[in-house]
Amino acid sequence: MEVFADFLAKIDHPDHRLRTEEVLGWVANKYPSLVPVTKWNQPMFTDHDTYIIGFSVSKQHLAVAPEQAAMMHFDNEIKESGLKHTKEIIRFPWNKPFDFTLLEKLIEFNIWDKKDCKTFWRV
């Protein structure tokens, strides 16, 4: 997880830093075949050089970006979770428990759906 050290060091709020480190560590441990990288100053994980999941932080939440195909596939679950979201990201508030079950579904879907993908982003 050394690849994310600079990103994590820039998170001022200690609880937000710990939560982000926890989530990134969870992904790295659960999916050891995924490659942790930092691109565009954001931590993300790739598989065979294709994007699987990315993260960003704000004052109010940890944002998870699984790409639109995964967002559309899990649209109902995302809405039922009560989490705020856009077409591209899901906002996981700092003051609530993190939904690792939803994150796992998003990652598993992207690994499966992009197994034959030859580009970084879906085309």
Rank of each mutant, 00 (worst) to 15 (best):
D49W: 01
F100D: 10
E22D: 11
C117D: 09
V35L: 12
A65N: 14
K118R: 11
K10F: 03
T50C: 02
P43D: 11
R19H: 11
R91Y: 11
E80N: 15
N110W: 01
D15E: 14
M72P: 00
Q42W: 00
A5M: 10
V57K: 09
I53G: 00
E2P: 01
S56E: 00
D12S: 13
N95A: 04
T38R: 04
S33F: 08
V35W: 05
W40D: 00
A69E: 12
T101G: 04
D12Y: 05
E108V: 12
Q68C: 00
L18D: 06
I107H: 01
K59I: 08
H48P: 00
F74L: 14
V27E: 01
F98R: 14
L24A: 06
D113M: 02
F45S: 04
L106R: 06
L62V: 05
F7L: 06
A69I: 13
L83Q: 09
K114W: 03
K84L: 13
V35M: 12
E67Y: 07
I53L: 06
E22I: 02
G25L: 05
N76Y: 07
A63I: 13
Q68H: 14
L102I: 04
F4G: 01
L106F: 06
G54W: 09
W40Y: 14
L103Y: 11
V3M: 05
F55V: 10
L103D: 05
F92L: 12
K96W: 03
P66W: 06
Q68N: 12
P43L: 10
V35C: 00
P93N: 03
M71H: 01
P43F: 02
V57E: 11
N29D: 14
D116G: 12
P97Q: 09
Q42G: 10
I78F: 09
L8C: 07
A5I: 10
G82E: 05
D49Y: 10
Y31W: 14
I89H: 03
K105M: 13
L62M: 15
P66I: 07
P93W: 00
G54C: 02
K114N: 13
K87R: 15
D49G: 10
R122G: 00
V23S: 02
D99Q: 08
V37E: 09
A70H: 06
I111P: 02
K30D: 06
A5N: 14
M44K: 04
I111D: 02
G54Q: 08
V123A: 04
R91H: 13
H16V: 00
F4E: 03
F55G: 08
G82I: 10
W94P: 03
P97F: 12
E21I: 00
E2F: 08
W26V: 12
G25V: 05
I89Q: 07
I52K: 03
T101H: 14
S58T: 10
R19K: 15
P32M: 10
F7N: 07
F45Y: 15
K96G: 06
L62C: 10
M71G: 07
P97Y: 13
H85D: 03
H61P: 06
I78Q: 08
E80Y: 13
M1Q: 07
